[in-house]
Computed example of a mutant assay.
Amino acid sequence: MHLARPQQRTRFFLAMSLVFLAIALTGFSTTYFIPLATRTLHAPPVIHVHGILVFSWLLFLILQSGLVQTRRMPTHRRLGAYGAALAASIVVSGVAVGLHATRRDLVNGADPFVIGQMVNILIEMALFGGFVAWAIAWRRDGEAHKRLLMLATISALAPAWLRLRHLMPGVPNPFVTFALLADALLLVAIAADWIRQRRVHPVYLWGGGFMVAVHLVEIWAIESAPWQRLGRWLMDVPAT
């Protein structure tokens, strides 16, 4: 079986890391960076902390991919512990941001979508943290390790994709449309595997398949009765 050279494989993951950063910068441009630059952003500290952590993760991913490409593996391994701590901090701050955003949106009424979104946020943070933990556990298997980190980042970028609706207001049903576009990055990764190696790594099949299945359930169930009951319990919203 023909295998791509390590440098070719690594270059792809570095390129994808740069794509992830571009998506995040574009998605949050209208709701965070531009208001921040024009001093019109009014947000609690937790929003800024979470934003710093997420963008630190994206920059960390670029750095680590670059270190692998230049074969500076000892440095790459030493920095791994910082990545683990960063990911754990993102999970904690992400839940905190979700609580803040849901409470803020509930001021305008107990909309079913708003109530259900907190459940989705908890699932997304668990998914991101789970993929990172899996990647750490399999850190000695470089091929699986880097693909698991890619899946974690694809999943974490969903909020940036959703905010693209402000740049493309004509997109119908943005929650569904941009959620599907976010997961389409998995198809790019699968295609890259197939083109270079004529096979798809099992991490993409099992881990990626699980990620897509979870996102489809979230889209379908956000306003369902179980989601609403759990969301109301989490946010202490009385049943109507």
Score class of each variant (00 low, 15 high):
1 M>S: 07
3 L>S: 14
5 R>I: 04
10 T>I: 07
14 L>F: 02
15 A>G: 09
20 F>M: 02
23 I>F: 10
29 S>K: 08
30 T>A: 15
35 P>Q: 01
36 L>T: 06
37 A>Y: 13
38 T>V: 10
40 T>M: 14
42 H>I: 15
44 P>E: 08
44 P>C: 08
48 H>M: 12
48 H>R: 10
49 V>P: 06
53 L>M: 08
55 F>G: 00
58 L>H: 03
61 L>H: 13
68 V>G: 14
68 V>T: 14
68 V>Y: 14
70 T>P: 02
73 M>G: 03
76 H>A: 05
78 R>I: 11
79 L>P: 10
90 I>Q: 07
96 A>V: 15
97 V>C: 02
101 A>G: 05
102 T>R: 07
104 R>L: 15
104 R>M: 13
109 G>R: 09
114 V>W: 04
114 V>P: 03
114 V>A: 04
121 I>V: 10
121 I>H: 12
124 E>H: 07
124 E>R: 15
128 F>G: 00
130 G>H: 10
131 F>V: 02
131 F>G: 00
135 A>P: 04
136 I>C: 01
137 A>Q: 12
139 R>N: 11
141 D>V: 06
146 K>E: 04
151 L>K: 05
153 T>H: 00
154 I>D: 04
155 S>V: 11
157 L>K: 08
160 A>F: 14
160 A>H: 08
162 L>E: 04
164 L>Y: 04
166 H>G: 03
166 H>P: 01
167 L>K: 15
169 P>E: 01
170 G>H: 15
173 N>M: 11
176 V>A: 10
179 A>K: 14
179 A>H: 14
184 A>Y: 12
187 L>A: 11
188 V>G: 00
188 V>R: 05
190 I>C: 09
192 A>G: 08
193 D>S: 06
195 I>V: 13
201 H>R: 03
207 G>V: 00
208 G>D: 10
208 G>A: 08
213 A>R: 12
216 L>F: 07
219 I>L: 14
223 E>K: 15
224 S>N: 07
224 S>I: 08
226 P>V: 03
226 P>Q: 09
227 W>Q: 07
229 R>G: 00
232 R>T: 10
232 R>H: 06
235 M>H: 02
237 V>W: 05
239 A>E: 14
240 T>H: 11
